[in-house]
Design a protein around this nucleic acid. Structure first.
Lengths: 181, 181
DNA sequence: ACCTGAACACCGTTCAAGT
DNA sequence: ACCTGAACACCGTTCAAGT
């Protein structure tokens, strides 16, 4: 079956490109990683990437989806923990991804596909967040606003380098308001 | 006094460059505005900019300071209004600047000077915010966390295109928690 | 189908040459 | 001191040529 074999080879090579892109985008940043750098890391010529991805934003979307898939899979294990612990876990998990978060916000302004991904990401995470709050017994009236506040605060914690104490204080303050209200 | 005259000419030309940069960075974005575009808008050759600014990030810093100065000046007029109105004013004022906000977060990762400006900006705005909350009688214990939560939520409102109703709901929720606690 | 070297249009920045 | 045309090193992307 030459077709299957070829398909496997193709998938392997694409996977290698994706692995390197994920590492480089997270470690060095999207902007600082040139297509030439990425190609060299994967051992191909610069323009070969375009056989596997439409353009650089397409590589970014593939990286974002890979990271999101892994994160959602890990989230299942913490979904039943106390509210405050969940919040801390999310922040710790995403702390290393703050370069990616900034990149999404920056690229969303210029690349419609990234803007669309950004919207979908918020739908998913806010849906999970709302479920968690509802299970914690938060009043359903203002829950939409509460969810958005929670998400915005998490994003703020991510993109600004706060020390552990400040971070914990903010998480406690947020969680307190849910468990008391 | 040829020295004064020369100085004035220089200031005028720099001011024109700054005006155009401010307009272009806000309308089209920092990344989308090339040095050649900026130069053309100001009626000079591309490399002439480097006589007035060290590099492109230096132009960005000048724009940020100009915008901040104007914003602080306008803030004085609303500083004594009710909390909720102040919050709404800040969000409306800054809504048009969301490209600039994204740019600061993106460039802060690569340009130390922008990172430094970003830190200073947060010190100033959080200081003002804290004063406002204290005057509103918010409990001083958790006020640090409360201030950061407020700032992060405002940044979130800025960088995500929420409709007016959602925006108002979030502002009301935030303000309620201050006036009740 | 897959990969490449070479080229293209662009970018921020530098430099030698002008006034 | 101030300004410029030309050049430099780089960027993402395209294309003709190879297998």
């Amino acid at each position: 079956m030459p077709a299957n074999k070829h398909y496997q080879d193709r998938e392997e090579k694409r996977a290698e490109l994706l692995t390197q892109a994920r590492r480089l985008f997270i470690e060095d940043g999207y902007e600082a990683t040139s297509m030439a750098t990425l190609a060299k890391a994967a051992g191909v010529a610069g323009n070969t990437i375009y056989w596997y991805f439409h353009d650089k934003d397409d590589v970014l979307l593939a990286v974002l989806n890979a990271v999101l898939t892994d994160a959602l899979s890990e989230y299942e294990q913490v979904a039943t923990a106390p509210l405050e612990d969940q919040l801390g876990w999310v922040v710790r998990q995403l702390r290393q991804l703050n370069r990616l978060v900034s990149t999404v916000h920056a690229r969303a302004a210029h690349a419609p596909a990234v803007a669309e991904w950004h919207t979908g990401f918020h739908l998913i995470t806010e849906g999970l967040f709302r479920t968690t709050l509802e299970q914690a017994g938060v009043n359903r009236d203002g829950i939409d606003a509460e969810v958005k506040i929670g998400v915005f605060v998490v994003e703020g914690l991510l993109t600004h380098g706060l020390d552990e104490a400040q971070q914990e204080a903010i998480c406690r303050r947020l969680a307190r308001q849910w468990t008391s209200g």
